[in-house]
Structures are given as structure tokens and as C-alpha cells.
Design a protein around this nucleic acid. Structure first.
Length: 288
DNA sequence: ACTCTTGTTAAAAC
DNA sequence: GGTTTTAACAAGAG
């Protein structure tokens, strides 16, 4: 489940590997992944990657000398971007990939791929077909950007604004934090982890939070994601980085996937329930 | 055979 | 018009 930290890890790695490279060939193995754009490959051929941005969980790729054509990449649930050098090797050996994908790329779940003039390649794998690699105009990109709220990891994130706004909402705090147009980047894992750090129950209605609790949430939402980026993100099911490697933040999860185990902070038993339509993990003893 | 997994969006209710 | 809830999407794991 790639959330902001995982997408940021991929972005940082891709910046080092493909900026300045020119696309020689594009493979489209599944039409849905490119929004059924029949000219997808043709439009990208000969383009040189100049920039890779991210807003929330969305990657925005720009091309040199082209102001009205962008490539949007969303990993959704099971998307992976795998880089392969000119000898056909992924840096991590691909041992984290599914068997079919490990043996050779393109694999069973490869949906699109890009071959650069220097012989290196970038593969987009996506088992469940929710993700996409699709083209967009400048106005479409601007519209997409405008649909996201501020990111808690940002140095300019306004905690006072957050405290004020979050206390105007009546839904369970978990649902509010998952709302990308309110704040961008949190998904199911980091919401549960941020709530644990702030000692707030996921089902608690947002407007019942004290200002102090809301301020703690603003702080921890950013903190937990920044820490994860430093160690390569979280691999829970499908996420791998561009070298096929797992993320290491899985070792630092305090509640997500730990139902039935002891809370490291208070010794209570971690519970799992459903909040805002999602599997939700929390400690009933120390989260109030 | 059935349930569970989740990021996003559309639709409907309020 | 904004907020909230629910279902749908898809395919694999158990």
C-alpha cells in the first residue's frame, strides 16, 4: 500500500536514475493503465525526462521543452516502478518481487514499460490494475494539484490551520486524516501509526479533539512519514522500491498489522476493527 | 467458496 | 456546496 513515504522514496530514486534520459520505446501491455489512450506510446517517444514531482501519492513527470504534456503515475494499491540497467539487472536483484516478476521483466503484472536510449528501462507493474501511467495536459495537472490539501511533512505545514480545521469536522478522525483534499499523503498505515503516537482513538469524532491533541496529530503525522522516508518506506504487502527492495519502516510499526500483540507503550492488547470503511488498528488501553 | 485486503472516486444522503 | 457514508473497482492470499 504505497502512501506518501513510499511514493517519495520512489521519486527520489527515479530522480537519480532517469532524469535527463530520452524515451526510445514505450510498451503498453494493458490498455486500462494508460486510460485507454491509443496514442500513449507515440506521444512519449523521443521525450526527455526533465523533472519528477510528487503531490500526495501522485507522481508528476515533466519533459524537456514541453509545457503541456506530463506523465502522471499513481501506484494505488499494488503499483511498482522497477528500474533495470542496460544489462537487465535491477539493483536489488528483484528478490522482493513476485516470482513471475523476478525471473524476467516484463513480468506477469507489467502493464507499461519505458526503454531509454541508453538501454536502461523502467517497468510499471501493477497486479490489481488500480494504478495508472497516463498523460495529462498542464490544465489537468493544475486541476489535480489543486485537489490535494497540504502535506504534513512540509516545512510550511500550518499546524494552527490544521488544529482549527480538523475541529470543524464531525466524522471519525481517521476518516478525516484519510481525506486527501484535507491533508495529503496519509493512507491506512500512517493514519493508524500517527493516531497511536498521539494517543487518539481512530473512531473518535474529530470535533471532540482538544486543541492540544489536534496539534499532536499534526506533529506526528509529519513525523511518522518523515521517519519512514528515511528508511525506505513500509513494505507490508506489495511495495518495493525502484530496485525491487523492501522498505524497512515495517520494523517500526507500532499498531498496523499488530492486532493481538502487546502495545509496546502500555502493554495493552492491540485491537483491530473497522473505521471509515478500513481495517483499523489501535491500542484500547492508551488511545483515548 | 468465501472473506479479507485498500486508494480513489462516484453517487446518494444529509 | 461541503461533509459523510457506502459501494465499486480488481485480483490475489488464506
Amino acid at each position: 500500500m504505497p502512501e506518501l513515504p513510499e511514493v517519495e522514496v520512489v521519486r527520489q530514486q527515479l530522480k537519480k536514475k532517469v532524469i535527463g534520459k530520452t524515451i526510445a520505446k514505450v510498451g503498453v501491455l494493458h490498455s486500462k493503465t494508460v486510460a485507454h489512450d491509443e496514442k500513449f506510446a507515440k506521444k512519449l517517444q523521443g521525450r526527455t525526462i526533465s523533472q519528477i514531482d510528487r503531490i500526495g501519492k501522485l507522481l508528476i513527470i515533466s519533459f524537456a521543452g514541453e509545457s503541456d504534456l506530463f506523465l502522471l503515475v499513481h501506484l494505488k494499491m499494488t503499483g511498482q516502478l522497477i528500474y533495470e540497467d542496460s544489462k537487465g539487472k535491477t539493483s536489488g536483484g528483484g528478490h522482493s518481487l513476485t516470482k513471475a516478476d523476478t525471473e524476467e521483466l516484463p513480468g506477469r503484472h507489467t502493464r507499461t514499460f519505458f526503454t531509454f536510449r541508453d538501454g536502461t528501462k523502467l517497468y510499471f507493474n501493477d497486479m490489481r490494475l488500480f494504478g495508472y501511467t497516463k498523460l495529462a495536459t498542464l490544465s489537468q495537472v493544475e486541476k489535480a494539484r489543486a485537489s490535494f490539501g497540504p502535506e504534513p511533512i512540509s516545512e510550511t505545514f500550518d499546524a494552527e490551520w490544521f488544529v482549527k480545521k480538523v475541529r470543524e469536522r464531525k466524522a471519525p478522525i481517521k476518516g478525516v486524516l484519510l481525506d486527501q483534499k484535507f491533508v495529503a499523503g496519509l493512507g491506512n498505515i500512517y493514519v493508524d501509526e500517527a493516531l497511536w503516537r498521539a494517543r487518539v482513538r481512530p473512531m473518535r469524532r474529530a470535533h471532540t479533539l482538544t486543541k492540544a491533541k489536534a496539534a499532536l496529530l499534526a506533529k506526528f503525522a509529519g513525523e511518522v512519514m518523515r521517519e519512514s522516508i528515511k528508511v525506505g518506506g513500509t513494505t507490508f504487502q506489495n511495495f518495493v522500491d525502484t530496485g525491487g527492495e523492501n522498505g524497512n519502516f515495517s520494523d517500526y510499526l507500532k499498531v498496523f498489522g499488530r492486532q493481538g500483540k502487546k502495545c509496546e507503550r502500555c502493554g495493552g492488547v492491540i485491537a483491530k476493527t473497522r473505521v471509515a470503511g478500513r481495517g483499523t488498528h489501535y491500542c484500547p488501553s492508551c488511545q483515548k
